[in-house]
Nucleic acid binder design. Structure first.
Lengths: 149, 149
DNA sequence: GTACAACTTAAAGTACACTTGAAGTCAAGA
DNA sequence: TCTTGACTTCAAGTGTACTTTAAGTTGTAC
């Protein structure tokens, strides 16, 4: 059983066949050999898909995974590519964590807020709620201006 | 200066005029009065936009913000609506934080990894890297099967 | 030989929050 | 009056990672 159909690969990898065709079309996966029109894969493709899965779990986009797998030319090792990309991605992920934690704080303040109308609630001004049982001042950043579009 | 043009409101709120028209079209913003075809806003719209901004920072979608502002009928106070929605949203945000922290761990393991080829690196198998200076075992969850699509 | 499942392609669809473009209207200053 | 900039509507486009659909082909079991 050295050959796998696309359905078999998809089932083992927990993907849909359409995802495998998509990965092939964007260059993440090498084109497998064919008989007539059908694709037949070596079992090693499952390892490649595992690499892709880990990269996705790390937050890389499909385009970035393409660079990870094939970018920078053959002189650069995969490990070096991963490290270069990971070093660039880490601040993004840290920013995501900070944003999500800020969301959580806003939600928790809202849960503890006793204001009846939004307008009387100073959460809106970025200074925490005045009427609720929580009086803890939130993180810095005066309200009013959002990120420039 | 009791009236603001759409450009003026947009500038003060840090948005584009198109965003205000979009908010109006999906019901987040009341339709302002018009002279001829042009929109003229009361300054109070800035407070409404601030509420929308806070809700967005809390992770609510535009549809959810619509419920927040107008949903459940008039018998329910805005505060009660916020609390109902925030209680439902909090687990989502906590899951987002957990996912992002998992991403960060994967990236950091990769940065400390000394493997030359992906295939020799056991990060792929979900057990951390064997060759690198870090020997810390990662979180649970055996590799192989991803979330069902 | 026939039925049926699994495969093939290309194009379009999905979700979200807007933005962009085209073509036209309006207000204000010189 | 003319110009210029800001506005109007409506439709289509953006980015991401795929999925879905349609229409046709192939492999396998009976």
């Amino acid at each position: 059983m050295a050959e796998l159909t696309i359905g078999e690969v998809a089932r083992r990898a927990g993907l849909r066949p359409s995802a495998l065709r998509y990965y092939e079309s964007v260059g993440l996966l090498d084109a497998p050999r064919r008989r007539q029109t059908r694709r037949y894969y070596d079992p090693g493709v499952l390892q490649q898909l595992a690499v892709i899965a880990v990269a996705q779990q790390a937050g890389f986009t499909v385009a970035e995974i393409g660079v990870l797998l094939h970018g920078f030319g053959p002189a650069v090792t995969p490990s070096a590519r991963w490290q270069a990309l990971a070093a660039a991605k880490l601040p993004e992920v840290e920013a995501l964590i900070a944003r999500a934690q800020a969301m959580k704080r806003v939600l928790e303040e809202g849960l503890n807020c006793g204001c009846v109308r939004f307008e009387e609630c100073v959460i809106v001004a970025g200074q925490g709620c005045v009427a609720g049982p929580t009086g803890s001042p939130p993180a810095a950043g005066a309200g009013g201006d959002r990120a420039t579009p």
